[in-house]
């Protein structure tokens, strides 16, 4: 007897297909599990930085993604630690602090076994409120 499991193809594809892309789910292939999602708004002070700390509740360093609307109200969300080149219509005045210390450790924006930590810097002379959202997976990120 062969192996067994569960599989569901996309509409129009035969269940005997051996092409992974034809499947919605196939227990022969691992998937990343969505453990926690969330969003928030943070005020980034003028000419200063702010840190967002999200406790993920997992006992390991998870795989995660976060997106930020760098230019408030633009509707455009950028993935991860990005700093756009100014002038840019979507750059706004906000970027993600993404520095390393002398030992190569990320010090501003990182994920560890307890938290997702995101640091934003505002280069403008007035406070800005920005939106962000995140996805934390129940899969190892290290």
């Amino acid at each position: 007897m062969g192996d067994y499991g569960i599989k569901v193809t996309n509409p129009g594809y035969d269940i005997s297909s051996t092409e992974p892309r034809d499947y919605i789910i196939n227990s022969a292939y691992g998937t990343v599990k969505n453990a926690l999602t969330g969003s928030g708004t943070v005020t980034v002070p003028a000419s200063s930085s702010v840190t967002v700390t999200i406790a993920h509740g997992l006992s390991f360093i998870p795989l995660c993604l976060f997106y930020t609307e760098l230019s408030s109200g633009s509707g455009k969300y950028f993935l991860g630690a990005v700093r756009l080149t100014t002038p840019d219509a979507d750059a706004g005045n906000i970027y993600v602090n993404n520095s390393l210390d002398g030992d190569g450790n990320p010090i501003n924006t990182y994920v560890d076994a307890t938290n997702l930590v995101i640091s934003y810097r505002n280069v403008a002379g007035s406070d800005e409120d920005i939106d962000y959202f995140y996805v934390i997976f129940g899969d190892s990120g290290s």
């Binding site: 360093i61 991860g80 450790n105 990320p106 076994a113």
Partner: peptide
């Protein structure tokens, strides 16, 4: 580095 952290 030496800390158990993953950067982005």
């Amino acid at each position: 580095g030496t800390l158990e952290r993953m950067s982005f």
